[in-house]
């Protein structure tokens, strides 16, 4: 079966700083991939390249088998990929993203936030959009808040609305960019629970997180990024419990709140 996402030799530079130095990654349907690594390792940039909030400097991204962007020959004789707005918009309807700082639209009610994509981008009718929005708000347990403005909600509730907003596009894959980092500790759980439920329903996901315990319990595959490369990859047990690489061990030692489940052996 065709993988949902395939990345080949992805590079990304900001000016002279190369943040991603050749990433290869395949994500199959229903898989949950968790990216870990210290800040500056490139994990957020990698995630942001998948929905083209950052345009790759080099490399290929296939979404459901379709190579994104168009090839263009440069004056220097090299070829480069260019991305047109219309293509990008189409891709992004198939890739949902949840941000660290929620980024809800503060001037719209919760319901309107979730309806916005289906209505404005997918152009489904007002009524259908409303139904769909309610359905996804229900899913994250916030249907009763549909008429509130985001500012009235707790951080955890806001992030769940943001999840509903992304789900309402009915994407093929969901991206979570440190979705709990901006939350107070007591609000982290409800968001992690919502993500876990999605996994159980078979949603394909890439998750960037600092919550190692959560990563362990939710991931099919863990990737440890270091200096813009995938340094170590494998199952949660392989990477988190029996890491081979020195860097990975050091990184995990810095996250001592993670307790390896005793029964994992």
């Amino acid at each position: 079966m065709e993988p949902i996402l395939k990345i080949e030799d992805l590079h990304k530079s900001f000016g002279r700083l190369e943040v991603l130095k050749g990433i290869d990654l395949t994500v199959n349907k229903g898989e949950t991939i968790v990216l870990i690594g210290s800040s500056g390792s490139g994990k957020s940039t990698l995630l942001r390249c998948v929905n083209f909030l950052e345009l790759p400097s080099q490399g290929c991204i296939y979404l459901k088998g379709i190579l994104q962007g168009t090839e263009k020959s440069m004056k220097s004789g090299k070829t480069n990929r260019v991305y047109h707005e219309s293509q990008l918009c189409k891709v992004r309807t198939q890739v949902g993203m949840v941000f660290q700082h929620f980024n809800l639209f503060p001037h719209m009610k919760v319901l309107e936030n979730v309806m916005e994509g289906p209505k404005t981008v997918l152009r489904i009718s007002q009524k259908e959009a409303e139904q769909r929005a309610l359905q996804y708000l229900e899913k994250v347990g916030l249907a009763d808040k549909s008429q509130s403005y985001p500012a009235r909600l707790s951080g955890g509730q806001q992030q769940r609305v943001a999840i509903a907003r992304a789900l309402a596009m009915e994407p093929d894959i969901m991206l979570f960019d440190e979705a709990t980092s901006a939350l107070d500790p007591e609000l982290v759980g409800e968001v992690l629970l919502a993500i876990k439920e999605l996994r159980d329903e078979g949603m394909t996901m890439i998750i960037v997180t600092h919550e190692i315990g959560f990563a362990y319990s939710v991931a099919d595959k863990i990737l440890f990024l270091h200096h813009g490369k995938i340094h170590e990859a494998g199952t949660p047990d392989e990477v988190l419990v029996r890491p081979k690489e020195q860097r990975t061990k050091e990184f995990l030692a810095g996250h001592n709140q993670f307790q390896i489940p005793q029964h994992s052996e």
Binding site: N51, L53, E85, S86, L88, C89, K90, V91, R92, T93, V95, G96, M97, F99, N103, L104, F105, E116, G117, T120, V121, L122, A162, R165, A166, M169
Partner: peptide, 10 residues
């Protein structure tokens, strides 16, 4: 970015 992420144009 939130707008772009749900497929909106500029």
């Amino acid at each position: 970015e939130a707008g772009y992420a749900i497929g909106m144009t500029r």
